[in-house]
Design a protein around this nucleic acid. Structure first.
Lengths: 243, 243
DNA sequence: CGTTAGTTTGATGGTCCTCAAGCACTGTGG
DNA sequence: CCACAGTGCTTGAGGACCATCAAACTAACG
């Protein structure tokens, strides 16, 4: 009988060959399943958290609110991503976490995690790899804000999300479903929503990509990669030193 | 006879009360002392590293080069900071590390680090705290690029460096020595060096801060904090759960 | 004493923000 | 059933902020 593989398992399996017993431990982490509704914060800024979550379905946004009320989105999470793992490992939480749509997530207690690590060291390494990848994405977003113009920023984000979703079987080079609004893109990219709208129109009319009604359709993958100077190395880099 | 305390020890001691034996382990990590000359990369982008360093003297810059040749500085390191620790812990190195001036650094092998962690778990937690703080700084830089204008960005960076240096006894609210050029500021803040120059002039003529000849003189600390909307919480946040 | 790195100033223009307004769609309550 | 509000998308006009180009100046250095 086939095990229904979770998105996290799919993602890790793409980089590390996991044994049957390791897969078992990984799936057991998904037992404590919970739902959260859109818009209600999972973690409030400043709160320190004892549990992490594995996102099974839906999208989530990590953000930081500024004193002046504006918000900077640090990253989006898609199925297979951890929520608040860094908060748990490093005992910190300096940003808020909010579901964009109704989500399904598995709660992972610190004790569960440590026990899983003790049972299967290779799994620990694989999860550390995932954390490392998250960090690399934050750095890449930093670079984007510092060194790319609006067109390239939008293109880069849409491409990154495509690659991440493809890894868990929810997207391809042709496109993917995407519940983000143009305001989300604006807050993530340091732009105004109005300008994001103009950029999207330009990309659409240029035959590169269409962002419409919850669907991203990539019309010219190579062209989009060229415009964004997109190098996916940071997304599937240096697998950890596994035997 | 007094032990000469290293910058790292000063920094950690400001947040965690360390025992004599823990201090001993910490100082022993500093044994393998080395010098590196300015401009020669310690770590090349893409290289994966087996050793980390503790910076004892001098300044270092972590950066990422773009396909188009421009460079985005991710962070600066000052005495007491780790170099390449994340690379070691997470087996990744997606950015270059270059000394700005001649530096002194203690090489820390993975084996040394793991042994120190095993001997003194509280020290491990303290060091994880330092890593967490580094991550928080990267996020804060991201927010700066996305949501602050040029004046606030410059002010914020100068204030952050002041707080970080004060912790290791190399600065105060009145100012500090700073070997950075205006090009460094520009590459870190996503601005052109020319515009950085204009902003610095404005801040100087506004009686807020003077950046000149390797010296940062803060003339109006409160005014600068207000301009930058600087909240140092991310620099001395949530100490790890130590007994 | 030329060269180089770093700083400074001016002029011009493009990118992107802000303000303003209109449209489509959805859900809500009278 | 229809007014109404709320959310998200779209377009236009005007202007601020900051990049780019150009050039001069200083200090350090071989």
């Amino acid at each position: 009988m086939a095990i229904e593989t979770s998105p996290l398992t799919r993602k890790l399996s793409a980089f590390v060959k996991l044994s049957v017993s390791e897969l078992g431990v990984l799936e057991r982490l998904h037992e404590r399943r919970k739902s959260f509704s859109a818009g209600r914060d999972l973690v409030h800024q400043g709160q320190s958290e004892q549990a992490a979550y594995i996102l099974a379905a839906g999208w989530v946004v990590s953000y930081k609110i500024q004193p002046d009320g504006s918000r900077q989105i640090v990253d989006f999470q898609v199925p297979g991503d951890f929520l608040g793992l860094r908060s748990v490992l490093l005992h910190t939480s300096d940003h808020g976490i909010e579901p964009i749509v109704e989500i399904e997530a598995a709660e992972v207690l610190v004790s569960d995690l440590l026990q899983a690590f003790a049972e299967t060291p290779r799994l620990a390494t694989a999860i550390l790899w995932a954390v490392s990848r998250d960090e690399a994405m934050v750095v890449e977003h930093l670079v984007g804000l510092g060194r790319r113009d609006a067109d390239a920023r939008v293109a880069h984000l849409l491409l990154e999300l495509g690659v991440r979703l493809s890894l868990v079987g929810m997207g391809s080079k042709a496109g993917y479903a995407c519940p983000l609004t143009q305001y989300h893109l604006a807050d993530a990219l340091g732009l105004s929503a109005i300008h994001v709208n103009r950029v999207l129109r330009k990309l659409r009319e240029g035959g590169l990509v269409t962002f419409r009604e919850g669907l991203v359709t990539i019309d010219d993958y190579e062209g989009l990669v060229a415009l964004a100077e997109f190098d996916p190395a940071y997304l599937d880099h240096a697998r950890p030193l596994l035997p």
